[in-house]
Amino acid sequence: MKVDAVTLAAILAMAAVTYATRVAGLFLVGRLQLAGRAKAAFDAIPAAVLIAVIAPSMLASGAAETLATVVTAAAATRLPLLAVVAVGVASVVALRALGL
């Protein structure tokens, strides 16, 4: 069971910033009054970050991945999370098999 030193440092850094985000809310009660544009920007963070991570796979990997993205997004409007993942994986396998 090997644990690389740099990997361990990365995991500890991730754990530290994550706990900081979790515990910060306890001290912000009543002090965090976001409104208007600032609130809109804060609310946008999860979607903006998640999309930024997958955009290369969605738009810069090939026609099969881009078409599978469209299929998956359509599935996401009506299916639960697990089914969305299943549809996404199945569609990319099928589109690659078609030679796209």
Partner: peptide, 20 residues
């Protein structure tokens, strides 16, 4: 197995959950 696309699909599903 298309598993490399699974997290792309997962994130699309998660973003749908944040949809406003």
């Amino acid at each position: 197995l298309g598993a490399d696309f699974a997290f792309t699909a997962l994130f699309i599903g998660l973003v749908a959950g944040f949809w406003k």
